[in-house]
């Protein structure tokens, strides 16, 4: 049984529309960025939230992504997909954020895990049942790059080819990365389940 890798949530027509909007922003019609913001604020927030489990930081990072889009709008040529370009910026924003915090001695694994546990205990939005909670905890224990692949492929529903463009590797290599990430997740999940 051959299934498509993932169903794209944004049809081609909408992608063209994204590019058109971004080209208008590039030409000085800055208000059009508002439309792109409304379209992508939630997916981007989900991406950052999946990585850091912190709502406030995630919102700041989303804001930072749109700030960079605005600042570097002249670099957008409209040849590639806007979404891929946007997530490329998002990844850079995330890396810069963590590099900065690492230098400042913040956000150590312990702090991160503390925040996760307290946050997840009071969150009702992300935890509908125990299994889901375990899965989220397992996700949180995965290394950043592994989590990132899963977030991009599963939550952002980017095509493997688009993820390949973002990560600078082939579509096949992305499939292997996703496979390994899911196996790692399964391992951590089973470990947590055993200890709970």
């Amino acid at each position: 049984m051959k299934l498509p890798p993932l169903k794209p949530s944004y049809p081609d027509l909408e992608s063209i529309s994204d590019n058109t909007l971004m080209l208008k922003v590039k030409d000085g019609d800055l208000d059009k960025l508002g439309l792109l913001f409304e379209r992508y604020k939630k997916p981007l927030y989900g991406f950052f939230y999946g990585l850091n489990k912190n709502g406030e930081i995630s919102e700041d990072l989303v804001q930072n992504v749109f700030y960079r889009i605005l600042k570097y709008r002249y670099l957008f040529r409209g040849e590639g997909d806007f979404r891929t370009w946007m997530f490329h910026i998002a990844r850079n924003v995330n890396h810069d954020h963590y590099r900065k915090n690492k230098m400042q001695g913040k956000d150590s694994l312990e702090n991160w895990q503390d925040r996760l546990s307290t946050h997840e205990n009071r969150s009702t939005e992300m935890q509908q049942d125990e299994a889901m909670q375990l899965l989220n905890m397992a996700m949180a224990r995965l290394p950043m790059d592994v989590r990132e692949v899963l977030l991009l492929s599963k939550f952002q529903e980017l095509k493997y080819k688009e993820i390949g463009t973002l990560l600078g590797c082939s579509e096949g290599a992305v499939k292997v990365k996703v496979f390994r990430a899911l196996r790692d997740l399964k391992e951590v999940y089973l470990h947590l389940e055993k200890n709970s």
Binding site: G46, S58, E59, M132
Partner: peptide, 14 residues
């Protein structure tokens, strides 16, 4: 696992 990941509620910004 992949299916389970996709079934979770998506967080929303404030």
């Amino acid at each position: 696992l992949d299916a389970q990941l996709g079934s979770g509620t998506r967080p929303s910004p404030t």
